[in-house]
Amino acid sequence: MKILLIEDDRDTASYIMQALDEVGHVTHHAADGDTGYAMASSMDYEVMIIDRMLPRRDGLSIIESLRAEGNTTPALILSALGEVDDRVTGLRAGGDDYLAKPYAFSELLARVEVLARRTAPAEAATSYQVGELRLDRLSHGVKRGDNDIVLQPREFRLLEYLMRHAGQVVTRTMLLENVWDYHFDPQTNVIDVHMSRLRAKIDRGQAKPLLHTVRGAGYMIRE
């Protein structure tokens, strides 16, 4: 995957680049807003990671200009501000996701990969299939093989989100944001409890589990 990183802090930038490189992504780096904007509009990237506060030109104005030009490359905004209202302004400016510093790299990586996949047409699918697990968005039915699985509405949305991003790591925060629409931070393992209940319904008694815990990062559903 080809990623553009616009970040003025050298240490952060080189750390992110190295880490993205280790998981097999090609990252281009711009250290200020002008250069970043020039690179973003002249080359094709799959995802942009843009710091909000940059020298010469701030991150939000870069995204606004790109969107005005018809550039739809998914953008993840990094911010030291991180207040609720900042997230709203960031998304309103055309950003696709918002991550407040300090963050864990696993969180950043998971979000970047989900963003990159967002452009794929899978978004509009009416049903998802992972192995023998099948979720029908229209009838709200879930089947594993021939067995019907009865899910609560929230469990259904949880599974739907996981299956839409099958094969990708989904962090606890992403689940909280996307399934519950909560943008705050529980101290307890509330997501883990919900996941273990979902797992019990899907994987119990099965030889081959589909729901996997990715240590230090989050969850993933895959064959």
Partner: peptide, 19 residues
């Protein structure tokens, strides 16, 4: 892995402080 979860906990603490 324990280190990562412990540092996540630290990040949470920092986030709470910042908030």
């Amino acid at each position: 892995e324990a280190t990562i979860s412990e540092s996540d906990q630290l990040l949470k603490t920092f986030n709470a402080l910042l908030l």
